[in-house]
């Protein structure tokens, strides 16, 4: 018997869609990794500056937006200033939207409490360049106001004035942040990642090259729990749980079918003999 893979696709679609329509409300426990990131932000002093780099494409928005919103909300509530930027062209509009939304919701003033620099191509050059001078890499913000005319731009010249970089990513950009900003300028970095990328960055966390990793919808749900504000991450947990369970069942099912086929082949041979 050979499985038509469309049945597999259908099973996954049902596993994701049903809990979206009829939430189960599975409990979320906070892991040490998420608490580490939360504590890192919690220990910042009001007035410290955090750089948010939206290093992702529009495609991963449903997974990374809850992560970015949770950490941004925490930063603003702690009185931390935020500078946003994008190292992927598509992240530019997305990052602007997220930063503005959370900034307005938390009643923050653009230019003083946060600002958005937009996109620069050639991420390795941009990351290295900001270690020397942010204004040289981003002469103006996303709305074309000269960087050094903005109150926050006047006091933040380079990584030396930035306490932490949060790379919101769906790919390898945090590696570039580690290799260029951390290794060369000693910049501290936290990675907020899609779930699939988390294991790739565990060695960096173990080696102390990252200050923390926040991973996937689960990370967002845990962070929302710490903030006491359930949002998109918490809502997505039911769907993700059932999807994982479905894949686990499919793996077991595939092996049972393979084993049955192997047994049938073996008994067939014995019968022939």
């Amino acid at each position: 018997m050979r499985f038509d893979r469309r049945y597999i696709f259908l099973a996954i679609a049902v596993a994701v869609a049903v809990p979206m329509l009829f939430p189960i409300g599975l409990p979320v426990a906070v892991t040490d990794e998420t608490r580490q990131v939360y504590d890192r932000i919690e220990n910042l002093a009001p007035g410290d500056v955090v750089m948010f780099s939206f290093d992702h494409e529009a495609s991963s928005l449903p997974e990374v937006r809850p992560l970015a919103e949770a950490v941004l909300t925490h930063c603003f509530r702690r009185g931390v200033k935020v500078i946003g930027l994008a190292l992927f062209a598509e992240g530019a509009a997305v990052g602007y939207d997220i930063l503005k939304d959370v900034g307005e919701r938390e009643d923050k003033t653009y230019g003083e409490d946060y600002l958005y620099l937009g996109y620069r191509p050639q991420y390795s050059a941009a990351i290295l360049g900001m270690g020397e001078s942010i204004a040289e890499v981003f002469p103006a913000d996303y709305d074309q106001t000269p960087y050094e005319e903005l109150p926050l731009g006047q006091r933040v010249k380079s990584y030396a004035d930035i306490e932490l970089v949060v790379s919101v990513a769906d790919g390898s950009l945090p590696t570039y942040w580690v290799e260029y900003a951390q290794a060369r300028y000693g910049q501290r970095i936290v990675a907020a990642l899609t779930a699939v990328m988390v294991t790739a960055y565990n060695p960096y966390l173990e080696a102390g090259q990252l200050d923390g990793i926040l991973g996937g919808l689960k990370g967002a749900a845990e962070y929302e729990k710490l903030l006491g504000q359930p949002a998109a991450g918490t809502r997505g947990m039911d769907a993700q749980s059932l999807a994982h369970l479905t894949i686990a069942i499919l793996i077991i099912l595939g092996n049972i079918i393979a084993f049955a086929r192997w047994r049938r082949g073996k008994s067939g041979k014995e019968g022939d003999a």
Partner: peptide, 21 residues
């Protein structure tokens, strides 16, 4: 783009079913 990205959920399931023996 999100639609294309969501294909991963289906392909992960299909590849896991086929590959994990």
């Amino acid at each position: 783009q999100t639609t294309v990205f969501s294909l991963l959920a289906f392909y992960v399931a299909s590849a896991a079913y086929r590959g994990f023996r």
